[in-house]
């Protein structure tokens, strides 16, 4: 019996040691892997056409997402401004730093549930998940690179030559496969397991405060922040300023009626993704709720549903914030599959 206990102890000891060693996981073509739409979500937009999902392709996309090789001076990766700990938003800065430390013009959005998005960017200028990376890659204020350079840098890397060969069976890396590999990774960043989701699916209950907050949210905010993705993907002027500095959607449509309109952002993980609004002007949820309560600025294109604000009481503001804090997805920010991979 004593010997048995000793053996057991040794086994546990060995196991615990094993966990601490850094392992590079090796995946093979046969690994089961696939996108599953959460039962309480609508059907997704991105369908993996000509880009069948495999674990190897996802892992390749993950390497690319975390690789600074993609930027012109190899200092900026996708993850530089889309950090897992911040629900794939930037590290709580107003504007993100691109190559050479230059600042962008709009707050880097958090990334989740991208497979459901009909278009991308604050102004909706990008029409497909696979071509979204072109925007930050080629923007001089961000990664400042050309696609042909990205392709030649990848082809000069024996690491990526081997990865693309095993994932896509190609000897020469193309921008198409590069973009598709990134989509394999970004499409899997699904946020569907917040306390709010668990409440929706009946696996948890809300506190009284959270319940009141949800009701207030449904009465006032869900019109634009449509459940369960918490955005209706429309473009609206939320009335942050009287004189429009950034024309937003108008840049894409050339329609003056779109001046100052931006895509309604999803509120998922909002507690982690401050500062808020397209220009990062608010740093706390209190500021945001105060703004929608009594701070709406009027202009020609301001969204009519906002009126002159919702005039929340101070208790209502606290309730609303309690609800907003149920939107944090610890499964997303803690999922080791989405973290920086070992090389």
């Amino acid at each position: 019996m004593k010997q048995f206990v000793l053996y057991l102890f040794i086994v546990f000891f060995v196991l615990s040691c094993k966990k601490k060693t850094v392992e590079v996981k090796v995946y093979s073509e046969s690994d089961r892997w696939g996108f599953e739409s959460p039962s309480h979500f609508p059907s997704p937009d991105y369908q993996f056409v000509n880009n069948e999902q495999t674990r190897l392709r996802f892992e390749l996309g993950r390497y690319l997402f975390y690789d600074t090789l993609l930027s012109s001076d190899q200092t900026v990766s996708c993850s530089s401004c889309h950090a897992q700990a911040h629900a794939f938003a930037d590290h709580n800065v107003k504007f993100s730093k691109g190559v050479g430390g230059v600042l962008g013009h709009r707050n880097a959005p958090a990334l989740s549930n991208l497979a459901w998005y009909p278009n991308f960017m604050w102004d909706g200028g990008v029409n497909h998940l696979e071509v979204q990376p072109l925007a930050p890659l080629t923007n001089p204020l961000e990664m400042n690179e050309t696609m042909s350079n990205v392709v030649s840098k990848l082809n000069a890397s024996s690491f990526y030559k081997e990865k693309f060969k095993s994932a896509y069976g190609i000897d020469e890396i193309t921008d198409q496969k590069f973009l598709q590999a990134l989509a394999q990774f970004t499409s899997m960043l699904i946020s569907s397991n917040t306390k709010y989701d668990q409440y929706l699916t009946g696996t948890t209950t809300f506190t009284d405060k959270e319940t009141r907050g949800l009701q207030l949210f449904r009465d006032n905010c869900a019109h634009c922040h449509k459940e369960p993705l918490l955005t209706d993907f429309s473009f609206r002027n939320s009335g942050v300023e009287t004189t429009i500095v950034d024309i937003g959607r108008e840049l894409i449509t050339q329609d003056p009626n779109d001046k100052g309109k931006f895509k309604v952002p999803s509120l998922r993980n909002i507690d982690l993704t401050y500062p808020y609004m397209h220009d990062g002007r608010f740093f706390t949820l209190t500021q945001v709720v105060d703004f929608y309560s009594d701070g709406i600025q009027q202009s020609a294109t301001v969204d009519p549903t906002l009126g002159d604000g919702f005039h929340f009481t101070s208790q209502e503001k606290l309730d609303l914030i309690a609800f907003l804090k149920t939107l944090t997805d610890y499964y997303l920010i803690g999922n080791p599959d989405f973290s920086e991979p070992k090389r």
């Binding site: 071509v131 990205v150 193309t174 198409q176």
Partner: peptide
């Protein structure tokens, strides 16, 4: 892919 590859520099990145 091919003639339509974005690396040909014939695709708008900010306004697809």
């Amino acid at each position: 892919a091919g003639a339509l590859a974005t690396s040909n520099g014939m695709f708008w990145s900010w306004n697809s």
